[in-house]
Design a protein around this nucleic acid. Structure first.
Lengths: 212, 212
DNA sequence: ATATGTGATATGTGATCACAAAGGAAGTAG
DNA sequence: CTACTTCCTTTGTGATCACATATCACATAT
């Protein structure tokens, strides 16, 4: 038996790091990225940075322009569209996940929610937990492809979620909705979940767009 | 006024070429790709090939394994799931496209369909036209993101569409469905379109999976 | 003073070289 | 004859160098 060693290549690390910086808005939408600058900053050559940026470009997080690379900026309309797409796909994911969800899985999600209830004072913490909460539920859908698409959509609007999480009342309202959604999941009530999900995402969109 | 010159970089060309070879099954699912081999074949260095493969990897068309890169092979279940995702997203695309479709756009699609009627004897021709027919309609949806996702899904199962297009009776049946779908679009009847689209994709899935 | 042309800088792209790790082949011990 | 070890080949990865093009600044001419 060989112990699988996690060998993470440099371009993978750079990719993860850049992606984190984009989603956390350390690199703001529209900001310029230069390959050599990133390479120097991380103490690597330009090669891994190029591959990382190429991947981010394919995922739609950065734009290659005539000169330089910039962090992709979304219009209000695009954000609205992405949220609409999420409605459809996250419903489908839960549709597929429901039969696979065991009691202990739901129990785990409930605990996660309770942990989040205690973190409504820290945007950044809550934002990460929120992502984990949703994506964990969808991960039971049994489709790599669907999971991947949903995560990509999630990541692409994550820079704008700061607008959402910076409103304290939103977080507490969102937690209410989360509890209701999990309740509907517990009772395998997909129609109810659909309504709640749509409300949840409508509210998310509204808060973001009102403060855009 | 500057006349935008289309400067296509080498990695872009390699990407297009490899993607075409994969979707047309010249490179079969599971087949091994080596960077240097591709580089030599196209008379370029390994660099552009690496970037092209990285992009294809992000799109899910190739796998990076411990040694070598292979063309992604889908299971029957994955194909079924992708088609299910397509149902939801293509319905959404058409929902958004309907208000934007002008009479002349529909007229153009009708002409495309009629051209396809004459090509049911040539799988490959018909396959390309079929893709163009559908994606052109969706292109009016007004969402780059949605278009991109749909095209990616389309491309990822395209290698398996040969199974579908190699059945002559399928093509003629598909054409009937296409005419019906376009008819419902012409009359802005989204509910009807949804039914037809689902039937169309169910049939596609059935033919592929029966001959898998 | 403004506009145009020219040169310098910045930056993405491509080629080549070197390296490390994995897989396979061959040789040797039991 | 089998199994294990060793060496070589394959192959992806990363670094460095060279190049082309776009942008910007400055100078010069009208």
């Amino acid at each position: 038996m060989t112990k699988q060693i996690k060998v993470e290549s440099i371009h993978e690390k750079v990719y993860q790091r850049l992606r984190e910086e984009i989603t956390s808005s350390e690199l703001a939408p529209g900001e310029k990225i230069t390959i050599r600058q990133v390479a120097d900053m991380y103490g690597v050559s330009v090669m891994p940075v190029r591959e990382a940026l190429r991947q981010l470009h394919t995922e739609g997080l950065v734009n290659y322009e005539r000169t330089g690379v910039t962090v992709k900026a979304l219009s209000a309309h695009e954000i609205q569209q992405i949220i609409e797409i999420r409605k459809r796909l996250e419903l489908l994911a839960m549709e597929w996940a429901l039969p696979n969800l065991k009691k202990e899985d739901i129990k785990k999600s409930e605990e996660m929610l309770e942990a989040m209830d205690q973190r409504t004072d820290d945007d950044n913490d809550w934002r990460l937990l929120n992502k984990e909460f949703h994506l964990t539920l969808y991960s039971y859908c049994g489709s790599q492809q669907l999971e991947q698409i949903i995560e990509n959509l999630w990541v692409s609007i994550e820079p704008y979620m700061r607008i959402y999480t910076s409103t304290v009342s939103s977080l507490e309202f969102a937690q209410e909705q989360h509890h209701e959604m999990l309740h509907s999941i517990k009772h395998k009530n997909l129609d109810e979940f659909e309504k709640l999900l749509n409300n949840h995402l409508n509210h998310t969109a509204k808060v973001i767009l009102d403060n855009f």
